[in-house]
Amino acid sequence: QKALSEIGGMSEFTLNPFAGAHGELTGLMVIRAYHESRGDSKRVKVIVPDSAHGTNPASAAVAGLKVVEVKSLPDGTVDIEALRPLLDDTVAAMMMTNPNTAGMFEHGVKEIAEMVHEAGALMYYDGANLNPMLGIARPGDMGFDVMHINLHKTFSTPHGGGGPGSGPVGVRKGLECFLPEPRVCRRDDGTFAISDDSGESLGSISATLGNFGVQLRALAYILSLGADGLKMAGPLATLNANYVKESLRDLYLLPLEGVCKHEFVFDGLRDKSTGVTTLDVAKRLLDFGFHAPTIYFPLLFHESLMIEPTETESRETLDAFIDVMREIAKEAVENPEVVKSAPHSTPVSRPDDTAAALNPVVTYDDLKSSES
C-alpha cells in the first residue's frame, strides 16, 4: 500500500479489487460515496473520452452513473474546448488514461483537472497505461483524485486469458474514509491490524483482501527494482514502442505523429490497394509464431493495430517482430491471397465469426452433439 501510494502520488490504497475493471468500479463507488456524503446527489454523470478503454463506460454504468462522451482532437488527446460545455453541477467525475489509448501523453491534463475540480467533480485515473509514467510522473501530481493500478500489467504478472489480476485503488488525502473495508492499517506502535470500522466505507467489495499472489509478486518486483530500477521502466517502455513504430512506419499507416509512450497505433497497411486488412495481418502473424497485438481498437481509426511492447521485450524479440511485420507487408503486395487466407499452420484456420455469434455453442453437451 505504501509503495503504490508513493508511485501514484496518492494518500492511501486498498488492495481489495480483483482486477482493473473491478478497480474502476470501486473507484467510482468511492466518488459516488464522496458526493453523497456532501448531500450532492445530483452528480450522476461521468465524462469519458471517446478513446477510452471500453471498461471505463461499462464501469460507470455498473456504478449507476450516466456516461457522457467527450471527443478527441486529431492528435488523439482530449478536446478541451469540447469538454467545457459538458462540465456542470451534474458531473461526478471525469475518467482519463494518461498516456491515452493511442499512446500519446495528454499535455493538457493539468488544465483539464483544474476545469473538472472547478465544476465540483473529481478526476479518475485509469492506470492501464501507467508503465511509461513510473518514476517520471505521478497521477496524483497531475491532479487525479482517485486511481487504480493494474498490478498484472505494470508489475511483472503476465496478463491476459482472464487473469489472474489485481486492481488496487488509491485516493488523495481526504477520501481515505470511503475506501472499502477491511484494510490493513499500521498502529501507532508499529504493529498491524485489520480495520473494518469506518462508518463511511463502501463496505466489502471482495471476499478477501484481494488476489494475494499477484500482490506478493508485485511487491517483490517493486522491492527488487527499487526506486532507480522503476525509473528505468518508463523510458524503456517508451524506447521500445518508438523503436518498433519508426521501424515500420514506411509500410504501415501512422495516423498520429510525435513521440509515443509505451504503445502506439497503426491504421492498417499503408498500401490500401492490396485489400489486406488489419484482421488479415493479425491472422498471418500466427503463422510466424506471434500472437497479434490488439486490433480494431481504439475506435478512433478504421483499421487500428495497437502495438504495446512496454519495457519487457528484448531487442532480439522486437527485431524478430519487426522482420515478420515487414514480411507480411511485402506479401500483401506480392501475394495478398496468402495473407487473406491465413493462418495456414494452425489446427483451426478461420472460424465463421458471424455463425458463431448467431448460433453460439455454449454448453459441453451441445458441443458434443454438434461434433457428432
Rank of each mutant, 00 (worst) to 15 (best):
V276E: 04
H344S: 13
L367F: 12
S156F: 13
Y125P: 05
E106F: 05
P336V: 08
E181I: 11
G210N: 04
V91D: 03
M95T: 14
L299N: 12
A93W: 07
A356L: 13
I80D: 05
V338W: 13
R183K: 13
V265D: 05
M147F: 08
F290D: 00
V338H: 11
D267V: 08
G160P: 13
K245S: 01
K110W: 07
P139Y: 05
L300G: 07
K153Q: 13
E308S: 02
Y296K: 12
S156G: 02
H148P: 03
D365S: 07
S204N: 11
M96Y: 02
K283F: 10
G275F: 05
E6R: 15
E181Q: 14
L286C: 14
R172M: 06
L25D: 07
T278N: 12
E303F: 02
P57H: 08
L285G: 09
T154A: 04
L122R: 04
I194Q: 08
R315T: 12
A61L: 09
N242A: 05
V109L: 01
S41D: 01
V259S: 09
M232Y: 09
L299K: 03
G8Y: 07
I149S: 00
A121F: 04
L256N: 02
R315Q: 13
L300H: 06
G54R: 08
L300W: 01
L122V: 04
D196F: 14
D89N: 07
K71Q: 13
P139H: 04
R326T: 10
G127F: 03
